[in-house]
Design a protein around this nucleic acid. Structure first.
Lengths: 243, 243
DNA sequence: TAGTGGTCTAGACCACGAG
DNA sequence: TCGTGGTCTAGACCACTAA
């Protein structure tokens, strides 16, 4: 990659951003890895430290990189904190947020439905991994989740029954399959509990549930997870901050 | 205000941020106003342009200021776009977002309930303005909204029946009452439609509705609006992006 | 102590908008 | 043409971390 500084071209720091993003998406630097120091990058790319700094600053704001003073700059990795603060929005009535414990009900493979093919941009007839689990908050079953993953990208997940899957799946995707979730789109609706919902959550059929349909994407923008959560919101709610 | 650069003190650009925020919250600069140029501020505060620039950059990311190349830097103001992109999240099934038309059902004053007193941090027994309206999307009544405002801050709103209120209330708060909404906290639940909900929305009682409880805050963090929206999500949904 | 990121400065030139 | 914000540079010093 050659940086160009021709008149009216894309700013240098933008080109550097793209270059750094490429090195992350192409796996040259993995999540948790340290990247070269600002001075090293500046020398390598023949720009000033300030220009590299500006590129890195924007990637930090973007949750792609993490800076640690005195240590260096690292590729952002999924830990429990990120799962809790960025990707989990259910809070109990007293306003405190805790990650629920999860119990895997099933984890198997099947042919993708028409909707799944379309949302995951899969070829017709592709296989998907289908996970169903139930999540407890304050010792009560509150959330039923159905998760769909493109089988091709997830090794042998779902081929053999795997027992209980870890609570923070995004950490699993990252460490086991080299797939990092970067952002997600959520669509929320109110729906009536089906008989199955009702029995799993200990409610009456027809009880209003909050349904969250999430599409999770990699840094490159590829959709890699479809997740439908149905939540009993009688003692919990979905918390969102609008800026 | 004197900027201090003592060892181990708060960085200069942070102090400048606070100072600029103060000038906005205290009304020295109103929404839509141009603020002094970076060079003018740098001279006034005896710092370099780069330091002022860094302060302003963060306030722009914070939606407090807006930069326009070649023109200057302005205090952010509420227009239809901001209402639509930042503060309205209901989208129809084909994924397009449009601001609903609103019909005001009532706008009157009353004594604040215990909950309203608590959430708006009002003195016991304070008056509030209570607005009820219904909002149409794609020509169908989809949302019922109840809005609570501290009467003290909103002049004579609700004293005389005011006919139909404008669609984008935050513009009204800003231009008529000098109150700028900066951010909001939303709590979402699934609830069953009451008889009144049902008749207003043309549904059966008990139909699941998405309830959004929003607390809107000024830049200073003072809560100034409580808004409860109940939405028919059979053909629409609440869209949220998770970063 | 050496190396990293964090803050701050001073000054150059570019791109845009208004008069 | 002038003033604004936008990009880029070069270099100083501070604060933190690890060896």
């Amino acid at each position: 990659m050659v940086l160009s500084i021709a008149k009216g071209s894309i700013p240098l720091y933008m080109q550097i951003k793209d270059l750094l993003v490429a090195r992350v998406t192409e796996g040259e630097w993995a999540p948790g890895d340290i990247i070269p120091s600002e001075m090293q990058l500046a020398r390598e790319l023949n720009v000033s430290q300030g220009t590299v700094r500006k590129a890195i600053t924007e990637l930090v704001e973007n949750n792609v990189l993490v800076r640690r003073q005195g240590r260096g700059t690292f590729v952002a990795a999924h830990d429990g904190d990120r799962a809790l603060f960025h990707f989990f929005h259910i809070v109990n009535d007293s306003g405190t947020k805790i990650l629920p414990e999860s119990k895997t009900l099933s984890c198997r493979r099947k042919r993708a439905s028409r909707q799944e093919v379309s949302k995951l941009k899969l070829p017709y007839g592709a296989q998907v991994v289908c996970i169903e689990r139930i999540r407890k908050l304050d010792d009560q079953p509150i959330i039923i989740e159905t998760i769909i993953l493109p089988a091709e990208s997830f090794g042998d997940l779902g081929k053999r029954q795997a027992g209980n899957l870890p609570n923070t799946l995004y950490e699993l995707y990252e460490t086991q399959f080299g797939i990092t979730i970067h952002r997600a789109e959520e669509q929320l609706r109110a729906v009536a509990a089906t008989d199955r919902d009702a029995s799993l959550l200990g409610l009456d059929a027809g009880t209003p549930l909050l349904e969250i349909e999430r599409t999770a994407l990699t840094l490159g923008g590829t959709p890699v997870e479809l997740r439908t959560s149905r939540c009993n919101t009688s003692r919990h709610y979905y918390q969102n901050t609008v800026l």
